[in-house]
Design a protein around this nucleic acid. Structure first.
Lengths: 212, 212
DNA sequence: GGATCCCTCGGGGATGCCCCCGAGGACGCC
DNA sequence: GGCGTCCTCGGGGGCATCCCCGAGGGATCC
């Protein structure tokens, strides 16, 4: 019996490419181009594997994964992305994806990856495999989030976001209804904990981690 | 006679999707996944249209366009991108592209767009058409560059780039071998001409226009 | 020789950023 | 009750940023 695959990607051209690549190897049981429809159809059709684009509008691929797994965590997801940024990989795997491949993959390799995930195994592109192993080795289960971001208090993260967006200390104070001195305290703590030395580096740091 | 199309995209899956979408409508005379090979093959095979991904590694789609047009400016390019950011559109059109569509386009529309460009016309996605017209209306032919950037002197642009990269006034002064006061003068002039009020906004402005 | 830019600098000042110091109140944990 | 963490806020100081003012030298154009 052929592997039953569901496709989620907002680009018709890419879905067509995947269909063409997998047509001989698996059975495509459905497609969706946005979050809500994807969740509903996946739960209805129960595919063996969901092939999921990471960068969906309306919440991203993670929203689809979370929505489906809230009802049935047994349906395996294979994430497909143009990005191989570590943040994206980590986020998807922590959300429950059983694999992550980039769109540079060839048709034959993609078919193999789909069958592997359907069989219960885990798949990563060679360039990502080493990174993923590093990231999860020595981490107690249940640990999530970036360890540096983890060290910040809730208030500090709130201030961090506003500062990274270009707010002045005074603006942040007004926005959060506290004094400028309090904002200074939080920024100071953030800079110390992240080992940075100016709000400019902070902005750069936040952008790198997509915290906006 | 069928339109002869050349494909440039670093993602095998996307090329496969485009092949599948266009197979009945045009003839694919070649493909490439990186800049140098693309230039060489396009100049050799002289397609009626080159379908070009904007975001190529190794210089981007603009490098391919520039390389080909340096030898033969008559070969028309249709840019294909996941982005519909104004900066990307402007850059590609100024570089010489005869059209710009996003990957959300369907197969039939893409085939139409390819034939239109091959026929000498210009094609833009509906969401971009209005923007492009606005950008080029009232511009004397031969004018290039952003009018706001245009108003800056060479020295001011140099300072702008360094400031946007996070340099302090003192660092910029050291880098350019002038005093801090001179840097202040230039920054002041830049902020006034661009109608901005802080170096943070300046950084944001520069990033939006990909001036780094 | 003027007129006009551009680049170069200075003084002085208002404000923002970042740090040091200390401190009080709220909350949860043992 | 004590202990720790978090959030709040102040004084004070050093440096950065951004503005005002003026000014000299060099290049270009008429």
């Amino acid at each position: 019996m052929r592997t039953r695959v569901f496709l989620v990607d907002d680009h018709e051209l890419i879905r067509a490419g995947i269909r063409a690549a997998l047509a001989d190897a698996v059975e495509i049981v459905g497609e969706a181009d946005e979050v809500d429809a994807a969740i509903a159809m996946i739960l209805e059709r129960r595919p063996d594997v969901v092939l999921l684009d990471v960068h969906l509008p309306g919440g991203g691929g993670r929203a689809v994964l979370a929505g489906v797994h809230a009802v049935d965590p047994a349906i395996p997801f294979l994430a497909l992305s143009v990005s191989d940024a570590p943040e994206d990989v980590i986020a998807l795997v922590r959300a429950g994806a059983r694999g992550y491949v980039t769109k540079t993959i060839g048709a034959a390799d993609l078919a193999d990856a789909v069958r592997t995930v359907a069989g219960g195994d885990v798949v990563f592109s060679p360039r990502l495999a080493g990174f993923v192993l590093d990231a999860f080795r020595n981490l107690p289960p249940g640990t999530s989030e970036d360890p540096e971001l983890e060290s910040l208090t809730p208030r500090e993260r709130q201030v961090l976001r506003l500062i990274a967006r270009g707010y002045s200390y005074r603006d942040v104070g007004t926005e959060l209804s506290v004094s400028v001195k309090t904002v200074e305290s939080h920024v100071s703590a953030v800079l110390r904990k992240l080992q940075l030395s100016s709000r400019h580096e902070l902005t750069h740091w936040a952008h790198e981690r997509r915290l906006l």
